[in-house]
Simulated assay, not measured.
Amino acid sequence: MEKLLENHQFATHAIAASAAVSLGTALTYPLDTVKTITQVGSGPGKQLNPSQVVNRILHFSGNSGLYGGLGWLTIGRISGLGARFGVFEIVTAFYKDGREDNSLNVSEAYLAGMAAGAAETLMTSPFELLKVREQVAAASRAPNTAAVAETAHTPQVISRLLRTYTPDLRALNQTVGLLSVLNPKHPNMTAALQEYPWMMTGTGNPPSVLDVRRPFDVASLEGWRALWKNLRSGIVRDSLYGGIFFATWQFLHQAMLDWKAVGMNPPPSTNEEVGPLSPVATSLAAGFSGAIAAVASHSFDTARTRAQCIVLPKYIAKERMFLRWKRPGKIFERWTGIHPTDRNLLSRGMWLRSARSAVASSVIVGSYFMAVDFLVPR
């Protein structure tokens, strides 16, 4: 009977957590979409403001464009936050082992949060890449119908790599015309050249990110490893975010417990004797912690978001591996996955991400505790 009750309570907590994550993600997703387009669409001489981004999305995709990729992010955040809080509880259990007051220091919370953030990155990376590309597609121009009609015949290799991709034959034929000085020994040189993947666009470049945003398209053209693209920036970002989030939350939590213990007679000897905090106070502490952590880790979020919008075919990745291609930039940039051309763009969308993280953290934590208080009998 006790095991059945424990399983019931575990399922109740899991349902409450999933519902809280879904609610917080849905409420703040438009901010995340605007943040992503601001990071990707900005350049050294061009900086998009939120109103320009919103107008562009509404023009190309309508209101639904603000929620492009919501399903991918929801799935990723449910699994990612589960990994984050699960690893944090496991690590902190070792710190608390043997302590009478079951307390946790801020430094210990920071180290446990860093480990939890790294675990979260491994879980959410594939869903985050697909989410980012759906958001970029929502703010980009749809293909011209005339160009699509002109590209009815798709070469065999191209159709195998990307089933839904329709190359621009006008650009392909123009490129082939530039190569007309070669000795035509092949009976159909134009069709033969078009079979090569690097001729897909006729410019020597891979297809646009708009054509490579589904899981099987990414796997076919870029390989399954591309789903964890620029993992270094993700690990640094989420480790830094998790460490600062849990350290700040632990500091505020302990401060609120000490404030609540003032005036109690007799004075409590442990935190358990003080009693639980209200869901409102806990959610506000989580929101403030999320805002601070988002600001501190935003540079690595920008670097990773911009890297996820770069289509890198498998054959180029293989060439880089065989040629021992060296990452550009300084040592710190190479180790953290920051491209040197993004140095002046790392702060773009910072306050949008901070606001989204604050609201999402507050809603997720507050709604979770309120749902647990309502569903779990005391």
Score class of each variant (00 low, 15 high):
M1E: 08
M1T: 08
E2N: 02
L5E: 10
N7D: 07
A11L: 15
H13C: 06
A19Q: 10
A19K: 09
V21N: 10
S22D: 04
L27N: 01
T28H: 08
T28V: 15
D32Q: 09
V34Q: 05
K35L: 06
N49Y: 14
N49G: 13
P50Y: 11
S51V: 09
V54I: 14
I57K: 03
L58S: 04
G62R: 13
N63C: 05
N63E: 10
Y67L: 14
G69K: 04
L73T: 07
I78L: 11
I78K: 03
A83S: 07
R84Q: 11
G86N: 01
F88C: 00
E89C: 01
I90Y: 14
V91I: 14
T92D: 05
A93F: 09
F94K: 08
Y95V: 06
K96T: 12
E100A: 09
E100R: 12
E108Q: 15
Y110E: 00
Y110A: 14
Y110D: 00
L111M: 13
A112F: 12
G113T: 07
M114G: 02
A116L: 05
T121W: 09
M123Q: 04
E128M: 13
V132R: 02
R133Y: 12
V136E: 01
R141W: 08
T151K: 04
H153K: 08
P155N: 01
I158Y: 02
S159F: 04
S159N: 11
Y165Q: 10
T166H: 15
T166M: 10
L172V: 08
L172E: 05
T175F: 11
S180K: 10
N183P: 08
P184H: 15
M189T: 14
T190S: 10
T190C: 03
P197L: 05
W198V: 04
T203M: 08
G204M: 14
N205R: 15
D211Q: 14
D211W: 15
V212Y: 08
D217W: 02
S220C: 06
S220Y: 01
R225D: 10
K229W: 13
S233Y: 06
I235A: 09
R237K: 15
R237V: 02
G242D: 02
T248L: 13
W249M: 12
Q250L: 03
L252Y: 11
Q254E: 05
A255M: 11
W259A: 09
K260Y: 13
A261K: 08
N265I: 14
N265R: 12
S269N: 07
T282S: 15
A286C: 07
S289I: 10
A291H: 00
A294S: 13
A294C: 07
A294M: 11
V295L: 11
A296E: 03
S299L: 06
A307Y: 04
V311N: 01
Y315G: 00
Y315F: 13
A317G: 06
A317K: 12
E319R: 12
R320T: 00
M321F: 11
M321T: 13
R327M: 10
K330N: 08
G337Y: 02
I338T: 05
H339Q: 07
R343W: 01
R348E: 03
M350A: 02
W351K: 07
A355R: 03
A355E: 00
A355Q: 00
R356Y: 01
A358Q: 02
V363C: 03
S367Q: 02
S367L: 05
L375R: 06
